[in-house]
Amino acid sequence: MKSISKMVLGLAATALLCGSLADPSIAQDGTPAKQLFGAVQLPNAASPAPLGFYAKGCMSGAVALPTDGPTWQAMRLSRNRRWGNPAMIDLLEQFSRDAARLGWGSGILVGDISQPRGGPMINGHASHQIGLDADVWFTPKPVQAMTVQQREDMPFTSMLDKSKFLTVDSRKWTGTHARLVMQAASYPQVQRVFVNPAIKKKLCQTWTGDRSLLGKVRPVYGHDEHFHIRMNCPPGAAGCERQAATPVTDDCDSKALAWWFTKEPWAPPKPADPNKKPVKPRQVMLSDLPKACSAVLAGPSRSEAEATYGGEPVAYSSQPAAPAAVGQIDAITSNPANVPADVPVPRERPFR
């Protein structure tokens, strides 16, 4: 119960700061942007819009992925990072159904998407700031819904053979894993799928389907326990900064992929000049983000009035208070209809 207790305390502490964000001057007091955005527990009451770049921006009008669905479960609920642009939530639900049809258990486990208003995070990610990034575990959804505590404690499963350098463990990796990643890459609205370099190499060696989709699968540090789906900026999203296009080939014989299997990416940083005074990294401030993010941060939270997503109503609690007891958290997850009025969590929208 330790992690749930920490979650309750964290909600209570951040609720005080959350209530102060209605005053725009608070955002100009030198507080790092990650603390400002990390304290907000609900989205703003405005139209959906990704603002800025994936690693430097914020999000307006977010909706939450329900904690449980027919073919998905949300993980690490204490992080409050299951919020996204409606297009991202819609994609995840579609992907979860497709994953189940591929034989990926009963669906997917979804990790972090974004915070309620996006923005920089206190820990865990440099991107995930505009509601168009999401992590999916390399672990299938179990048939039985997990409790809140189980979602906090369930360990990740790495796809790597830890005894060999950048090598996929053939005892864990299967053809279904490959089909899952490539299914994610197949959607036209998906811009990139980030995986560990060893997984990209494995796909290059074994994938017999549409090879052009491999260009979307990009190697990056980590990502051996989950993969990261990144969407294109939605049509008409003028404030969303687009990323460079991915290769139209499989990109398997490129110098960029080969570079990951040299010593350079993994070499320790060169020692700093002992004669120079260490420079403390500069914190990202609200002023470093798109100007619209100040209004997003200071705007009122969604009220109990219905907000529309995909033609169906979604309602959110407006009170920035924390749960009064640990028992309420389990009740919220198992039966969202019984959420007390003072608990600032999203009410689940109907399944489609």
Rank of each mutant, 00 (worst) to 15 (best):
F95L: 15
I229M: 14
V181W: 02
E264M: 13
H226I: 03
G236M: 08
N338V: 15
A245G: 01
R171W: 01
G222E: 11
T139M: 14
P320F: 07
K263A: 15
I329Y: 09
S318K: 01
G239E: 14
R347L: 12
M159K: 05
F351P: 02
R179K: 15
W207Q: 04
Y54P: 00
K56M: 05
S334M: 12
D342T: 12
S318H: 03
A256I: 00
W207D: 05
L91F: 15
A295I: 05
N44T: 05
S20P: 00
Q243N: 11
N335K: 13
M231N: 11
T14Y: 08
A267S: 14
F138T: 10
P43Q: 08
L16E: 10
W207N: 03
A178N: 07
K202P: 00
P281Q: 10
Q35T: 01
V220H: 07
Q328H: 11
K202G: 00
K141D: 11
P43T: 06
D288F: 04
G299K: 01
E264L: 14
S114K: 09
A256W: 00
P269H: 08
T67H: 14
L286R: 01
P70G: 13
K200D: 04
T167K: 12
T147D: 09
Y309T: 11
L297H: 02
P32T: 00
R352S: 12
P346Y: 10
D169R: 03
A245T: 05
R349F: 12
G105V: 06
V217I: 04
G84R: 12
R349M: 13
N44D: 15
F138E: 12
A331L: 13
M159W: 05
S254W: 05
A33K: 00
R282E: 12
T262V: 09
